[in-house]
Design a protein around this nucleic acid. Structure first.
Length: 474
RNA sequence: GGCGCUAUCGUCUAACGGUUAGGACAGAGCCCUCUCAAGGCUUAAAUACGGGUUCGAUUCCCGUUAGCGCUACCA
């Protein structure tokens, strides 16, 4: 039985990279009939925030991907310390009384890898105990066997066999001087305790996995299978970050713009994973069915966005595909939050099929169908009313004729079309020349949904009054 | 700097060591058409570079270059 976990730290908004990690974990669990675990990794007390946690839950709720068990890392500190103690008692960790390094002073120093703080590794147990008993603060560090020849090894389900020489791994911290576990320790202790079978997470942890392997080994636990995921990059080649790339990296931005959850999931899982059958648009069920770790590739993927167009064109296209695939009834329901409050559901039901294949985002209803929701059309240039190869006089004739015809015609798509086409014949003009002024009069612009359905949805009264107003303009 | 990872059209990707290197998005053009879409057709566009191994490398190996990640008492 596979057990996987998503373990976000509540220190920022739910990022699309994190969402993708969640999605892959979820797909793996559901595909294999396993267990999905949500674990809030909140050991960094200073940086945790409630807003961040809310954002994570909101985001996951919107995605609609459930989980089976939930934990909070901060409630499991005893477990973490027990593991640290066990490792310490085995002599595989030691106390480091060196005061915490102030910031990134020599972070990118050119003098090779830092391995440990001089003098601390060799402290005798007596000395160490005495200083600790005296209340001197210390961090607990893993005693990496630097002298040992050979490598720490593990098989990554995505990246294959991994090996790193003991001599290249620094004595990382297990416990901070305030007694709180570090990420490495807490992670491994929890993963072991929760009997996690597969750790599916971002590639930024690939190098950390050697340390984690060391911890699992030291604690006498079998390490889960690691499966690292290629990272999401910005178009400028940088790692996506809220700070430099803004709201495009936040899941709620996609939700608020009117992405369908499944379209968003579809887009994200195609970034770094392929069903290998040229399928692009996938339903949730199909994705679960097709998902395997073998389909994950190794190169980072870039999410395209610009100042003008904040969403990846492929994400937009997929969203449009999913929108078109919905029943108009379902779509109308999704549209409700994007439409003026109090919009008549019946009217929305009439409008929806007219705009369904003209939308990329749900919020597009506001620009594509705006004229349905106002009593009075915003001002437009009367010149717009003049049809191709025509003049103001023709426009006026058309509108007067249209007003006459529409006053009596049955207000259904087919009847309307027949009536207006007949009218154009009567006037001796092309059908297009007939439709264009009517469209502008009724919609306030030249590009709009199909005319007859629009007239029908708008209703006789509104059409007639808008045409009358247009005639006045000429 | 050290260590790790990666490299196919602009982007996402496909290709038992043998294909005219395929698909999709975005672009261009045509068709359809009451405008706009949608749809159909067409088009342009890639194996980073250099060495091997092999009858034959996108595919395997080595090097170079480039990018990314880690190198914290953040995660």
């Amino acid at each position: 039985m596979h057990r996987v976990r998503f373990a976000p730290s509540p220190t920022g908004f739910l990022h699309i990279g994190s969402a993708r990690t969640y999605i892959f974990n979820w797909l793996f669990a559901r595909h294999s009939g396993g267990t999905m675990i949500l674990r809030i990794d909140d050991t960094d007390v200073g940086r945790n925030s409630d807003a961040s946690e809310t954002s994570i839950f909101d985001g996951l709720k919107w995605l609609g991907l459930d989980w089976d068990e939930q934990y909070r890392q901060s409630e499991r500190l005893a477990l973490h310390r027990a593991m640290a103690d066990a490792i310490f008692e085995k002599g595989m960790a030691y106390r480091d009384f060196t005061p915490a390094q102030s910031g990134d002073s020599e972070k990118s120093g050119a003098q090779g890898t830092w391995l440990f703080n001089a003098g601390m590794r060799e402290l005798s147990r007596e000395q160490s105990d005495r200083r600790a008993a005296a209340g001197e603060p210390f961090a607990l560090r893993f005693r990496v066997p630097h002298d040992r020849i050979g490598h720490v090894k593990f098989a990554d389900a995505v990246y294959g066999e991994q090996a790193k020489a003991y001599a290249d791994i620094e004595d990382f911290a297990l416990l901070r001087s305030d007694g709180m576990p570090t990420y490495h320790l807490a992670n491994c202790a929890d993963d072991a305790d929760l009997r996690i079978t597969h750790i599916i997470r971002g590639q930024e942890h690939l190098s950390n996995a050697f340390k984690h392997q060391l911890i699992f080994d030291a604690a006498g636990a079998t390490a889960p299978t690691f499966a690292h995921l290629p990272l999401l990059m910005a178009p400028d080649g940088m790692k996506l970050s809220k700070r430099v790339h803004g709201p495009v990296v936040s899941v709620t931005t996609y939700r608020d713009a009117g992405f369908l959850p499944q379209a968003f999931i579809n887009f994200l899982c195609l970034l770094g994973w392929s069903p290998k059958n040229d399928r692009e648009k996938l339903s949730r069920e199909e994705t679960v069915e097709l998902f395997t770790l073998e389909g994950i590739n190794r190169a980072n993927a870039v999410v395209n966005f610009t100042e003008e167009e904040p969403f990846d064109p492929k994400a937009l296209w997929l969203n449009a595909e999913h929108i078109r695939a919905m029943s108009p009834q379902d779509l109308a329901r999704e549209l409700v939050p994007f439409v003026p409050a109090g919009t008549d559901p019946e009217k929305l039901g009439k409008i929806t099929p007219l705009i369904q294949e003209r939308m990329k985002l749900l919020r597009d209803v506001q620009t594509v169908a705006d004229f349905f929701f106002v009593d009075e059309l915003p001002p437009y240039d009367p010149a717009e009313l003049i049809p191709k190869k025509g003049d103001a006089a023709m426009a006026k004739n058309v509108l007067i004729k249209a007003r006459e015809v529409l006053a009596t015609a049955e207000f259904t798509h087919d009847a309307l079309e027949a009536a207006l086409r007949a009218a154009s014949v009567e006037l001796g003009i092309k059908a297009g020349q007939m439709f264009e002024p009517v469209r502008v009069a009724v919609c306030g612009r030249k590009t709009a949904p199909p005319l007859f359905g629009t007239l029908e949805a708008l209703g006789r009264e509104a059409c007639l009054s808008r045409i009358a107003k247009a005639i006045e303009k000429l």
